[in-house]
């Protein structure tokens, strides 16, 4: 696992660049990760990211789009507007969480 420095913090990431240690994340890192993929975070983004962080803490896995919509109350359409093209993967990346299961 590579270790990288981001927003002045040293964090562990996997080969794809997703953070692997839940507690190493903070909001400055989230902002920097978002910038890496060309996103500037607004309140709308933060609402989603905080939901994902809290939900991971209680569920032990990254929420799917369906769960963010059903449980978090954020419509799927708005997630596509906030995190274009691949919202599930982008949200997880910025929130410092594993990407949701690649279901096979």
């Amino acid at each position: 696992m590579p270790t990288i420095t981001i927003a002045s913090s040293s964090v562990e990431v996997n080969d794809e660049g997703f953070m692997t240690v839940y507690d190493e994340w903070n909001e400055e890192i989230g902002t920097a990760l978002a910038a890496n993929i060309g996103l500037e975070l607004t309140d709308g983004h933060w609402e989603v990211i905080r939901f994902l962080r809290d939900d991971f803490a209680s569920q032990g896995e990254t929420a799917t789009l369906r769960r963010v919509s059903n449980t978090g109350g954020m419509p799927t359409k708005s997630l596509f507007k906030l995190f274009p093209k691949k919202p599930a993967k982008k949200m997880a990346y910025i929130a410092g969480l594993p990407k949701p299961h690649g279901c096979v």
């Binding site: 590579p2 990288i4 981001i6 990431v13 996997n14 080969d15 794809e16 660049g17 997703f18 890496n36 993929i37 093209k85 691949k86 993967k89 982008k90 990346y93 990407k99």
Partner: peptide
């Protein structure tokens, strides 16, 4: 190359 960024 030292900072892996996922391809979206």
């Amino acid at each position: 190359p030292d900072i892996p960024i996922p391809s979206f």
